[in-house]
Design a binder for these strands. Structure first.
Length: 664
DNA sequence: TAGTTCTGTCATTGC
DNA sequence: TCGCAATGACAGAAC
């Protein structure tokens, strides 16, 4: 029992180490490419109200629309959300590995029979249907064959010792990545057909491998199944793995891990609670088990509840930490583990380790955002939450004209004038900013605590527009704040006229049948054709040219200012980085000086000792003040007279010595 | 009321 | 030569 305890404790320490590594080493591109689909499923799925915000999808993926990459607020928000999402996404594919390790002792041989002899990822349909440990269920709930996948992916996690994902992980982590062969590639193609079934279990392994090796292997397909090994071998492999591959482990995590003690073993002894932990945690990641999450109607509620409970569980952490923690896969598991009273220590350690790592990544900003978001979410009905989730994107889109959010249809209907122009010819961003006031007032009010639409998301999207904008409006930015919309049409018209730009008014006054956006954005050839083909007067032509010039210059100015701000920001970051480097070098310098001083003292002492043992021609000990030891390049040590420093005060002594030497 | 910030515009330069 | 992007400078509005 003692041995088992030791194994389990150390093994869990290693698992925690791996988790901390997960928290640290996040490869964005890999996730975007390798896990893009699950990411989308997770974030767009209704089961996770917190993760539904599709901001990370806005930039590059939606119908040619993209938020301008230079928008600083967007950058910050996207970066934060993306990192958070990535960390959160780690849960579904990675946790199976951890779960497998936890369940090594749980599943008996009978389950093995359920799993089938050859397929390590089959299994345990009961666990699959019931969902313990199944994180893929949520992702695939929306899929027609979700149940099937759940059954088959889950097993890989909860299998017996020989087939557990831990086995695979252990072996693959230490061996497989290096010995990846073409033969396996062939198998990959076959298995890619059944990838949804096996990839989940494998993905965790792959990610761990990548973490260990510092290489992104997310494109790796599922591996073939490895032979089984016994539990002792698992743990020994795991331990050896840690020794060889985890040398660079963060010391902080290691310190935290030292706190793991009896609670861990007791936690390990309760596999059922771990199952439950995985089950309940699945909702957060969008990965569900059928048992716990089979009722779709309760999913959002469960997710929300889980978020709240997570925050309450970690009372020692800041609210933001707690909230952010809920978004993390391991965090939620920790939380759930902590819900089982005996596991609080482990959960706390994991949480702290993970967040220490995250904080080191500079993700503090996540807290502020997520605090606000969760502040809204927690106060709402789950059903409303679901809507708001999309609205969170909408508020962004409302400023950017993006088509993503469900509310966009409403937005476009009410303000189609600009939304048709997905270009984001956002020199006329003021128009876009006014959207919330027109079309989505309800959403705006709902999101008032964050109020992204008002001031945060100034959409200075300067990307070249593909245009089409409706005649009217270049609304000055201030327009939104000044004038609440009136339902009265006359008031609306007057408001519109009042908010029209000067050029728009001029164009209308000159009977120019083009909007400013059209004039500005149309290709030069088309513009020239318009000038020639419509029989405009010289005044009209001049106005058209001026409007086009001013419009383009306006965009250019916005671009220019944005770049300037970016440059300033970059320089500030560079300054901070250099200051930190300077401080570090100064500390190193001081340390080096100290070391040199100590070594010098040692050398002096050693020299004195040696000289004291040497005798001159008269048999007298050598005076350490007059002689010193010099080590030559060949390694020989010779005794040399001390050179007197050429100081003015010692000139007299020098002359005396010279006289003495001459006499001698 | 002065200072700050934001935005639009003009003039200029270089490609 | 023309179109355009980039940018400095200025002015006006809003806070």
């Amino acid at each position: 029992m003692q041995i088992a305890k030791k194994y389990l404790t150390e093994g869990l320490i290693q698992l925690t180490i791996l988790l901390s590594l997960i928290g640290v080493r996040v490869d964005i591109d890999s996730y975007l490419s390798g896990y893009y689909t699950p990411l989308i499923e997770i974030n767009l799925g209704p089961s996770s109200a917190y993760t539904q915000t599709p901001f990370h999808n806005l930039r590059d993926t939606l119908d040619g629309y993209s938020v301008h990459p230079k928008c600083p607020e967007l950058d910050y928000f996207f970066a934060s959300r993306r990192l958070l999402d990535e960390v959160r996404t780690l849960g579904s594919p990675r946790f199976p590995t951890q779960l497998s390790a936890w369940l090594v002792h749980q599943v008996s041989a009978t389950d093995k029979a359920d799993c089938g002899p050859s397929n390590t990822n089959n299994t345990d349909t009961s666990s699959g249907s019931d969902g313990p440990g199944d994180q893929a269920g949520d992702d695939r709930e929306h899929l027609p064959d979700s149940g099937h996948e759940v059954c088959q992916t889950t097993p890989g996690l909860g299998q017996g010792p020989c087939n557990s994902g831990a086995c695979e992980f252990l072996q693959e982590a230490s061996v497989c990545d290096v010995t990846w062969s073409s033969e396996e590639d062939a198998k990959i193609k076959e298995e890619e057909e059944t990838a949804p079934l096996t990839q989940l279990a494998h993905s965790s392994t792959l990610e761990h491998e990548s973490l260990l090796e510092g290489i992104n292997v997310f494109s790796d397909p599922p591996r073939h199944h490895l032979p089984t090994i016994d539990i002792d071998q698992h743990w020994s492999n795991l331990l050896s793995l840690s020794v060889t591959d985890l040398d660079d482990l963060d010391s902080l995590v290691t310190e935290r891990l030292s706190d793991l003690d009896t609670d861990i073993t007791s936690a390990i002894s309760q596999d059922v609670s771990l199952h439950d932990a995985m089950v309940t945690s699945a909702g957060v990641f969008g990965v569900a088990s059928d048992r716990a999450e089979s009722r779709p109607g309760t999913q959002q509620q469960r997710a929300l509840f889980r978020l709240e409970s997570t925050g309450s569980t970690h009372s020692d952490a800041s609210p933001g930490m707690a909230v952010g923690l809920a978004a993390l896969p391991f965090a939620s598991e920790c939380n759930l583990t902590g819900n089982v009273s005996q596991h609080s220590t482990l959960g706390g350690c994991l949480d702290e380790a993970v967040f220490d790592q995250i904080n080191q990544l500079g993700l503090e900003g996540l807290d502020t955002i997520d605090i606000q978001l969760m502040g809204c979410l927690e106060s709402m009905d789950p059903q409303v939450l679901e809507d708001l989730d999309s609205d969170s994107g909408l508020s962004l889109e409302s400023s950017s004209g993006g088509p993503v959010s469900p509310g966009s249809s409403e937005m476009s209907s009410s303000s189609s004038s600009y939304c048709e122009d997905e270009c984001g010819a956002t020199g006329y961003s003021s128009e876009v900013d006014s959207l919330p006031a027109k079309g989505i007032m309800d959403y705006t009010t709902t999101w008032s605590p964050i109020d992204l639409s008002e001031s945060v998301w100034h959409d200075h999207t300067y990307s070249s527009p593909t245009f089409f904008s409706p005649p009217s409006v270049t609304l000055p930015h201030k327009g939104i704040k000044e004038e609440p919309l009136s339902d009265d049409e006359d008031d609306g018209q007057r408001f519109e006229e009042r908010e029209m730009s000067r050029d728009e008014l001029r164009a209308r006054a000159m009977c120019i049948p083009f909007s400013v956006l059209q004039i500005v954005n149309m290709p030069v050839e088309e513009f020239l054709e318009v000038l020639d083909g419509h029989g405009f007067s010289s005044e009209q032509v001049t106005l058209l040219r001026d409007i086009r010039r001013r419009g383009k210059n306006k965009l250019a100015a916005q671009n220019c200012r944005k770049r300037k701000l970016d440059a300033i920001t970059g320089l500030q970051e560079e300054v901070e980085r250099l200051q930190a480097q300077r401080d570090r070098l100064l500390r190193e310098k001081q340390l080096t000086a100290k070391t040199m001083g100590a070594v010098g003292q040692q050398i002096k002492q050693l020299t004195r000792d040696v000289l004291a043992r040497l005798r001159d021609d008269l048999g007298q000990p050598l005076n350490p003040e007059r002689f010193t030891l010099q080590c030559g390049a060949n390694g020989r040590v010779v005794v040399q007279p001390v050179r007197q420093p050429a100081v003015s005060t010692s000139t007299g002594n020098k002359t005396d010595k010279r006289k003495k030497e001459k006499k001698q």
